[in-house]
């Protein structure tokens, strides 16, 4: 989000076994303007839209957390991110 931040990935893999199966995938993306525009055009505020997109993005991880923690984490993320859309 924004143009002053950075995201980096350094995946190391050391495989010394011919029968091992290893997969890796990585993507880097910005929250797309058209996603935001879609939400905005349906009356969702920009902030809510960002929260929705971020939460959807993080859902795989949150569902691993115990229930009360997952809710807390979701709120925490929303609070920490408020207004960081540029």
């Amino acid at each position: 989000m924004g143009d002053k931040c950075g995201a980096h990935t350094f995946p190391y893999m050391e495989i010394r076994n011919p029968s091992a199966v290893v997969e890796h995938e990585a993507t880097t993306s910005k929250i797309a303007d058209d996603q935001l525009f879609y939400c905005r055009s349906r009356g969702v505020s920009e902030e809510d839209a960002v929260n929705m997109i971020v939460n959807g993005f993080c859902k795989v991880v949150f569902k691993e957390l115990p229930m009360e923690f997952a809710v807390e984490a979701q709120n925490l993320l929303a609070v920490s991110l408020e207004g960081s859309v540029g």
Partner: peptide
């Protein structure tokens, strides 16, 4: 933000 991971077999 950096992800740094090692998978070693």
């Amino acid at each position: 933000n950096t992800y740094r991971g090692l998978v070693k077999v």
